[in-house]
Design a protein around this nucleic acid. Structure first.
Lengths: 137, 137
DNA sequence: TGTTGACTTGGACAAAGTCCAAGTTAGGAT
DNA sequence: ATCCTAACTTGGACTTTGTCCAAGTCAACA
């Protein structure tokens, strides 16, 4: 994630302690935190960080293409730092756990031209749903 | 949609004017209204209907499997009455328009067992994104 | 080590959804 | 027909999630 910070500095970002902490919190695999969760974890390291700054920073990271916004449930948006490797999400209907998965083939290919209704289609997001081993009856 | 009301009555639903109006508002193809939109349209016919009742009724319809909840953006949930024919969604990144589409093949088939991480996977929701003819530059 | 524009802050506000006590009513029982 | 009652609806308070802004702070360049 430190290479991320360098990349952003190269793009003219001012490297503040707040942004550094937010980037650090988002490091790792299978990370899909809500903005409030990011704020809580960031505040553990930098107590005076404000919610507004977390929202601002997440929005900027998304706009720069460094973080993905995922809407797996109609509730809070979640932020996924794994923006540079194509993947989809597998969500447990019991506990809400979210894992990154890699289906084979390009999901876009399944949509025939006749079904595209004149749209220029550029992306496909897939959410697989089921029960994780811990939630299975 | 009147057959829906009959089906629900058979399941022990009390058929109130509020529920009737909500079901009527949700009739049609490519309908993906938010709860507030449903409330506004229902209130046009039945002015005293409350937001709480709309939320209750939508929740019940979803629990009964008669309506789908879709989360295509991180904002309000949308309600899709087309629950009995498998389909996916195509969303315009410009204006937010949502259309029902029918990719070929079963999206579930693209996820190999090794990628299922021990989950029992039962569904796949696909959101295609792009620009509709009106929003294309 | 000063300066300055970019960044951060806290709080007010807005949007989306939940919950509850009190009032109303659909539909079976009489 | 009309009564009864559990089921349903209501309005409002409350929570969660997200946005906006004026005032204060600070990173990075000179």
């Amino acid at each position: 994630m430190s290479d991320l910070l360098e990349r952003l500095r190269g793009r003219g970002w001012r490297l503040t302690s707040q942004r550094r902490v937010v980037a650090e919190v988002l490091d790792g695999d299978h990370v899909h935190l809500t903005a409030d969760e990011v704020h809580a974890r960031a505040a553990a390291r930098l107590p005076e960080i404000s919610r507004a700054t977390v929202y601002n920073t997440l929005g900027e990271l998304v706009a720069l293409g460094e973080v993905l916004e995922v809407a797996t449930d109609g509730r809070a948006r979640r932020y996924d730092p794994n923006a540079h490797r194509a993947h989809q999400h597998l969500v447990c209907s019991g506990c809400g756990a979210i894992r990154d998965v890699h289906p084979h083939g390009d999901p876009l290919a399944a949509l025939p031209a006749a079904e595209r209704l004149g749209f220029t289609v550029t992306a496909a997001e897939v959410t697989y749903r089921g029960l994780c081993p811990d939630c299975r009856p």
